[in-house]
Design a protein around this nucleic acid. Structure first.
Length: 453
RNA sequence: GCUCCGAUGGUGUAGUCCGGCCAAGCAUAUCGGCCUUUCGAGCCGACGACCCGGGUCCAAAUCCCGGUCGGAGCACCA
């Protein structure tokens, strides 16, 4: 099995399906999993990817047994190409690109198609040695000029790219196209099964010619359907542009669909795995369900997540007529073993309640400050009405004690909420449930990232 | 346009290869109820689907044909 991302940037949630499906297959049935970085287009490489892709995979719990970098295997591709040229299965074409296309669409041979292997070998060497400029010559694999799908007809295997390569600089100028290097590597690395997206079905057709010409054994191919991620920003070029012009803070900006962003929001690796395993390998296209993804994550974290109070849009409220007030509550309502939080806030304290609650209540309404006491609202005064829970039907709200710090929660839709957070939460790190608000990854005493409701 | 692929409730899926045990399972969402000092979690219940039309067959979500809709690819990206 193998995963073959292009190193145009860190992995995003779309890649995670490919990685997890392959990994899951190996975990269940045995075998090896190769991470093959496909960096054969020097113009579209972000060096950060060489480091970050393995890190993303590690975080996802995907264990690969080998790491292969295609640009380190150029000599192999060259020698495989020469073999095909000598066998008469490939030729160097120096037509202008438009002419080449026109002929193929018409199902006609280009004038170079029948040149003899010797001449082609020589021209290919000239390509490698700099005898042609970018765009002047390509190596083409002969297939079938009458193939019903025009894109499968004689396809390009190598082209010249003068862009410097982040790993090799200007050492190479002739790079294999994905269909060539993929076919060669899939065979040479001993691949028995290939799982990849349905968008590669046509590529599989093309790659089969390489296997046929070499009499190589074909792997089993599986193509899963495409997933639409509504509203999720995945496109590498968009992200890069956004980072460059400061619209995004980086690859881990929580508005993005990168693995880094989900991680920052407090999603668990296991969530990705469960989601993609549940989605299966059907060839049907589908829409990513944030709802289900969130629900899986909640299921995983709810039982171990501490509860805290966050008060967005706070208003100060003076409690009158109370004795010394003490609030003591478990960090998790059904897990007392997780410990308790406790505040001693004295007599007639000033506390903070969300304006969203307080302002929606009429004077004279009795409400309960959770784990503290009942009060009756009068303007900005809360008349103390006892600490005992007497009526379960009244509104129960979260509140913050004196001394609570400012806190901002950033949401993936770009909005944020500011307010106060209770002192014990400000020193907590990681995902917590902010009661009646949602799950939030507390990054520091001032900042949290919204996970999901 | 051409080539290929697909179609199960709001959403994600199981079942389709080898027709009957599918008057269609699960999850999520929604709605009720219970429980709970969170609008969280848990428990119970309800709602809700085999794209359409033909055919084969004792029997079709499952096989065949036609249609419709949707998707992918279409050449110096991976």
């Amino acid at each position: 099995m193998r995963m073959a991302p292009s190193p145009s940037g860190p992995l995003h949630i779309g890649h995670s399906r490919m990685a997890i499906l392959n990994d899951e297959y190996v975990k269940r049935y045995g075998g090896r999993l190769i991470l093959r970085i496909e960096d054969t287009n020097p113009a579209n490489i972000d060096p950060i990817a060489y480091e970050q892709i393995p890190r993303d995979l590690e975080w996802l719990g995907v264990n690969f047994s080998d790491l292969v970098i295609q640009s380190d295997r150029m000599e192999i591709y060259y020698s495989e190409a020469k073999k095909l040229i000598e066998a008469g299965h490939a030729y160097v074409c120096t037509c202008v690109p438009d002419e080449f296309k026109r002929l193929l669409l018409a199902g006609k041979a280009c004038p170079h198609r029948n040149s003899d292997p010797k001449e082609n070998s020589e021209k290919f060497s000239r390509m490698i040695n700099g005898g042609f400029k970018q765009g002047e010559a390509v190596l083409v694999i002969k297939t079938d000029l009458n193939h019903p799908n025009p894109s499968v007809r004689d396809w390009i295997a190598f082209r010249i790219s003068e862009a410097p390569h982040p790993r090799h600089g200007v050492r190479y100028r002739v790079y294999p196209m994905m269909n060539f290097s993929v076919a060669v590597d899939d065979h040479l690395l001993g691949l028995t099964h290939v799982i990849r997206g349905k968008d590669h079905i046509n590529n599989t057709e093309k790659q089969k010619y390489i296997f046929k010409y070499n009499s190589w054994k074909l792997p089993e191919y599986y193509h899963y359907g495409l997933v639409d991620f509504p509203g999720v920003i995945l496109k590498t070029s968009t992200i890069k542009k956004g980072i460059a012009n400061k619209q995004y803070t980086g690859w881990d900006d929580i508005r993005l669909g990168t693995i880094l962003a989900f991680r920052k929001r407090g999603f668990q690796p296991e969530t990705f795995r469960r989601y993609w395993v549940q989605s299966g390998m059907r060839e049907i296209d589908s829409e990513f369900s944030v709802e289900i993804f969130n629900s899986i994550n909640k299921d995983i974290i709810d039982g171990t997540t501490r509860r805290f109070f966050f008060v967005p849009d706070p208003v100060a409220v003076k409690i009158t007529g109370s004795g010394d007030l003490i609030s003591k509550a478990p960090y998790h309502p059904s897990k007392p073993e997780m410990g308790y939080k406790e505040y001693h806030i004295g007599r007639d304290p000033e506390v903070y309640i969300s304006g969203r609650d307080w302002n929606s209540l009429a004077d004279g309404t009795v409400l309960r400050l959770k784990d503290l006491c009942n009060v009756e609202k009068y303007g900005n005064i809360a008349k103390f009405k006892g600490v005992e829970m007497t009526d379960r039907k009244i509104r129960i709200v979260q509140w913050c004690p004196p001394g609570s710090g400012n806190f901002t929660v950033y949401h993936p839709d770009g909005n944020n909420d500011t307010g106060l957070i209770e002192p014990l939460a400000a020193s907590h790190r990681g995902v917590a449930q902010l009661e009646r608000y949602g799950y939030v990854n507390i990054a520091d005493s001032l900042t949290g990232y919204f996970t999901h409701p």
